[in-house]
Structure formats: structure tokens, C-alpha cells
């Protein structure tokens, strides 16, 4: 599905998102990640050897939760699956874009990172208060 505009805006802003995957034993794993939008999809970067990358290799289903850094009661939740893994120049272009958003600088590493794009099945934003 296409991301609703209010959901997309929360992922385009320099907010931290929390990415949930499923461990080999079926239990949950969650870590904060930098996120962006690429090709209309939620993008995040990771080492290909990280716990989350290994979880995704076994089961691509993910859930992502984000709150606005300035207005924490403005939030979005997305469920879907990792549909695309990008390597090489295509990945580094997106990684640098995401890094600039959070730090103002390109990403400091040039090895050991890949980009995953998430195909959303459910996405909604909420604002309380």
C-alpha cells in the first residue's frame, strides 16, 4: 500500500523509529533505527550481520513505530514486510541522505551497511492531546 501522507511525514522528519522483528524462537526483537523514505517506501539501514538483519532474512515481517521528536503524542505505526534489500552505490546514496537528515553529514562508514525497504500492509498515524 501507499503510505498515508501523515505517516510518511513522520518518517521523512528526523525522528527515531523503533523496528520490531521476530527472533528465531518466535519472540520479539526491537531496536531504534534511523529511517527515511525511498521509492515511496520506508527505508532503514543496518549491518547485514545485525540481529535484525538475520531475523529479517528468516522472516521478513516487521512492525515500525515512530513518534514525533517535538510532539511525542503524534505517532505512527506500520506493519509490513521487508520487500527489497539494496547494496552498493544505490544503498550508499540512501544512507547518506538519511544520515544528513539526522546529523547534517554523510554517513561516516563505507562498509558493512545495507538498506532495507519496507512494503507496508497497514499504516496509520495518531495524534493525542
Amino acid at each position: 500500500m501507499e503510505l498515508p501522507e501523515d505517516v510518511r511525514a513522520l518518517f521523512e522528519a528526523p525522528n527515531y523509529a523503533h523496528l520490531a522483528t521476530v527472533r528465531p524462537d518466535g519472540g520479539p526483537h526491537t531496536v531504534p533505527v534511523w529511517v527515511g523514505i525511498a521509492d515511496g517506501k520506508i527505508a532503514f539501514l543496518t549491518s547485514p550481520d545485525s540481529r535484525k538483519a538475520r531475523n529479517i532474512a528468516a522472516d521478513p515481517r516487521v512492525a515500525i513505530s515512530v513518534t514525533d521528536r517535538g510532539q511525542p503524542f503524534t505517532m505512527a505505526q506500520v506493519r509490513g514486510r521487508v520487500a527489497t534489500r539494496l547494496d552498493g552505490d544505490e544503498a550508499w546514496t540512501i544512507i547518506d541522505e538519511i544520515s544528513r537528515k539526522y546529523t547534517g553529514q554523510p554517513y561516516p562508514l563505507r562498509t558493512d551497511r545495507v538498506v532495507f525497504l519496507v512494503e507496508a500492509d497497514h499504516a496509520h498515524a495518531n495524534a493525542f492531546g
Binding site: 520490531a20 518466535g26 526491537t30 515481517r61 503524542f73 505505526q77
Partner: peptide, 18 residues
């Protein structure tokens, strides 16, 4: 802190809410 709670859906997929 706004806490992200991850649980496991009936189909084994993850679910997060704040």
C-alpha cells in the same frame, strides 16, 4: 518516555504500539 511495546500477533508477526 513514550514506550514502544512489541508483542507477537497470532500469525507470528510483530506488532508495536506506544
Amino acid at each position: 518516555p513514550m514506550a514502544h511495546l512489541t508483542t507477537i500477533n497470532a500469525d507470528g508477526s510483530p506488532q508495536v504500539s506506544v
